[in-house]
Computed example of a mutant assay.
Amino acid sequence: MSASAGQGFSALILAGSRGGVDPVAAYAGVSHKALIELDGQTLLARVAKALREAGATQIAVSVSDDTVRAAATALDLTVLTAASGPSCSVRDGIETLGTPLLVTTADHALLRPEWITRFLADAPAHADVAALLARQDVIEAAAPGTRRTYLRFADGAWSGCNLFHFATPRSVAALDLWAQVEADRKRPWRIVRRLGIGTLVRYMSGRLTLVAALAHLGRLAGLHAAAVATPFGLAAVDVDKPADLDLVRDLIARP
């Protein structure tokens, strides 16, 4: 069990911008998708509320937009200036808040406190860094018809859930690797190629499990990395596309 489970923790919300016009923000008619309102609350407020209800005692938000900065200040969040990419923003967050640190994103519109507490409880105690993932069948049972990007391994097809736990100071070693994965997130075979030819062959032949792949990536970075499977399929639904926003609005409107 993670040391953060069952006690207060620090959290970082990534709310930076990739530059240019965000299609989801434009679709919703706002300047930044963190400011999209669902059921009377902005996405940023919804995420902060879920974190607080899960036990977060200090929450920072990484921003690149003055309007989001003002919204974060109004929510009594610690405001950090977003770096050039998510991995660099996490590095800044760790420098400010230390470890352990839970990291999520402002577009995690459906985030619930029980998903967070379950993740922290299930993260192995020896892991320097852990990532929450959901299997395709679990996601599709919770949100039929949703389209996500999946990593396909011997133990199933998986999608990330935008929840990461940086448990120890050693976890910063994962950030350079994260930067590489960011660049290749739509091309899973390039991510696996970093594991070496033997592991790549296992992946291409369908014999590599996600757990083994992440553990090996951790060893390459000099730390213990763990994948944590969630039973909550909606944890993998964020708001990357206008269709995602339509789905989230529909799910929230359901009785």
Rank of each mutant, 00 (worst) to 15 (best):
A48L: 05
G85H: 11
S171K: 00
H126S: 15
T42N: 02
A11N: 12
L251S: 07
C161N: 08
G145V: 06
R219E: 14
P242R: 03
R219D: 14
A34G: 10
H126D: 15
R147G: 06
A236F: 04
A3C: 13
L111N: 03
V90P: 00
H216Q: 13
F119Q: 09
A235Q: 05
R193C: 10
T57L: 11
G19P: 06
A134S: 12
L217I: 10
A123Q: 03
E114F: 14
A134P: 06
V47F: 01
A227M: 05
V239F: 02
L132N: 12
V228F: 01
P113W: 06
L14Q: 04
A45W: 01
A227E: 00
L14A: 08
P255I: 05
E182S: 10
E140D: 14
S10V: 03
T209N: 06
V129C: 12
A142C: 11
A243W: 02
F9P: 01
H165L: 15
T42Y: 01
L51G: 04
Y27W: 02
L214H: 06
S2P: 03
S10W: 02
A167R: 01
D122T: 15
A26M: 07
R193M: 14
D22R: 04
L208Y: 03
D65P: 12
G222S: 07
L245A: 03
V21F: 08
D246Y: 03
A70N: 11
D244I: 07
H224Q: 08
A141K: 14
V47W: 00
S10F: 05
